[in-house]
């Protein structure tokens, strides 16, 4: 009898353990593959490409962020913050919208150009490059990286330092697209207390974020809450909400705790 009770007890324990494991697995998901430095921030756009028998577009964030502020593309040109949310069409580009605002064959390469021999050279595969070998890109990430201050995560580039040192100069105005704004009033930095014991508090640089993003990129789409009104957790951020809308996708990843939890403890 005692042996039977012991077996029952063990069965119940195993069942409970199994149920708890499954519920936690559903919450935290599977482990993601860490992208290579040149892939970090890249977005695959496939709203219409595959339907039109084209390879999806691989958008390299690194070369674009090395030249432009986030606001120029995500506010002025109108790229949605959610991948695939803009629903860019070929006609849009030809009308000078979205990619076509710069990729017009004059500012930067367009869909095609005429070479010195008078031949038309198509550039389709420079954007529609998903899983395509042998595409010749103008910019080499690893050559570029050598000229930048090293970062520990993401692209392996410390973008903040790169800008502070003047190694990248970010364009914030595109003629015919951007509007002339009144001078930005620098918002104050915000101190956010960490809920985890022993974790330093966060000093949120409102100034730095506002210079790159403006106000309307984050408010209210990403941060539609008044300060302290809604408490968000690291899990929300890992799931791509709040800070996670950029951090872990393009801006330095969440693994770089010291990027945000910067307040000196002593």
């Amino acid at each position: 009898m005692g042996k039977l009770n012991k077996t029952r007890f063990l069965t119940v324990c195993f069942s409970l353990f199994f149920l708890v494991s499954v519920s936690f697995a559903a919450t935290y998901g599977a482990k993601k593959r860490r992208p290579k430095p040149h892939e970090y921030g890249s977005v695959v756009i496939n709203n219409f490409s595959a339907k039109n028998r084209m390879r999806p577009v691989v958008f390299p964030h690194w070369i674009h962020r090395a030249k432009h502020t986030c606001r120029l593309c995500h506010v002025d040109i109108g790229f949605a913050m959610r991948a695939g949310g803009t629903e860019i069409t070929e006609e849009d580009n030809k009308a000078g919208l979205y990619c076509g605002a710069c990729h017009d064959g004059q500012q930067v390469f367009g869909q095609s150009e005429t070479n010195e021999k008078g031949e038309t050279v198509e550039h389709c595969d420079r954007c529609h490059s998903y899983r395509k070998d042998g595409v010749v890109f103008k910019n080499n990430f690893y050559e570029f990286k050598k000229t930048m201050p090293a970062g520990r995560f993401g692209n392996g580039i410390d973008w903040l330092k790169a800008e502070d040192e003047g190694r990248v100069k970010l364009v914030d105005y595109l003629e015919g697209v951007s509007i002339k704004r009144q001078k930005l009033k620098n918002p104050e930095d915000i101190e956010i207390s960490a809920k985890e014991t022993g974790m330093p508090d966060i000093i949120f640089s409102h100034r730095k974020h506002a210079i790159w993003n403006g106000c309307e990129l984050c408010h209210p789409e990403i941060f539609g809450v008044n300060r302290g009104e809604v408490r968000y957790t690291m899990q929300d951020i890992f799931d791509g909400r709040y800070c996670g809308a950029c951090h872990d996708l393009v801006a330095f990843p969440n693994a770089d705790c010291q990027g945000c939890h910067t307040k000196p403890v002593f």
Partner: peptide
């Protein structure tokens, strides 16, 4: 459009 959105940086 330009007049209205020109206020965004001083909205606060």
């Amino acid at each position: 459009f330009e007049r209205l959105c020109g206020y965004t940086d001083i909205a606060t």
